[in-house]
């Protein structure tokens, strides 16, 4: 998964990107500003130290764990392609991010669980990808920024033939 073009954004951009989402407003800045405890200064792997001033996240919002756009998987109900209430804010945040960054493109990958026939599941995966795409388009994202592809049940996220596995495999993945 490669990031295209974008690397640094001022706080303003971030706020613009998540402007449409009520649950997150303000919270990301605050938590960032709070600073992770740096007492174990050794090396925790995450290179988050420094680079921040005045509570701003200077990185790409896609990499900001507190931003809604860090969520790239949207889950769906059985045989359904409607974006669930609990994922609407995530999709809207991605849409806002794409509107704010018109040079960024995203691939919207639709997936299905293993039940039923394979080609029908390809159709179902496309329908899921398409409902995410349409929601983004309605926010003003340009058509050329979004490519959809359906893998049906061919690329499960987790193995297994139970509801827990199926629930994780019925999804749309956003690949920037």
């Amino acid at each position: 998964m490669k990031l295209k073009k974008v690397s640094m954004f001022p706080l303003l951009m971030l706020m613009l990107a998540i402007g449409g989402c009520s649950s997150m407003s303000g919270s990301s800045g605050k938590q960032d500003g709070g600073g992770a405890p740096v007492s174990d200064a050794g090396m925790a792997g995450a290179a988050t130290a420094g680079a921040r001033e005045g509570g701003s996240w200077n990185g790409n919002p896609l990499d900001d764990p507190n931003s809604l756009v860090s969520t790239r998987i949207i889950y769906f109900d059985y045989d359904s392609a409607s974006v669930r209430e609990d994922y609407r804010d995530v999709v809207i945040a991605h849409g806002a991010y794409l509107v704010a960054n018109p040079t960024v493109v995203v691939t919207v990958e639709g997936h299905a669980d293993e039940r039923g026939s394979r080609e029908y599941n390809i159709g179902l995966g496309e329908r899921r990808a398409d409902s995410v795409r349409r929601l983004m388009l309605s926010q003003g994202v340009a058509e050329h920024q979004i490519t959809t592809v359906s893998f049906g049940e061919e690329r499960p996220l987790v193995a297994g033939s139970d509801e827990a596995a199926w629930a994780q495999n019925r999804r749309v993945e956003l690949l920037y």
Binding site: E119, I122, G123, E126, R127, D130
Partner: peptide, 9 residues
């Protein structure tokens, strides 16, 4: 074959 080029399968 199945194509969705015209909008849906």
């Amino acid at each position: 074959l199945t194509l969705s080029k015209d909008g849906n399968p």
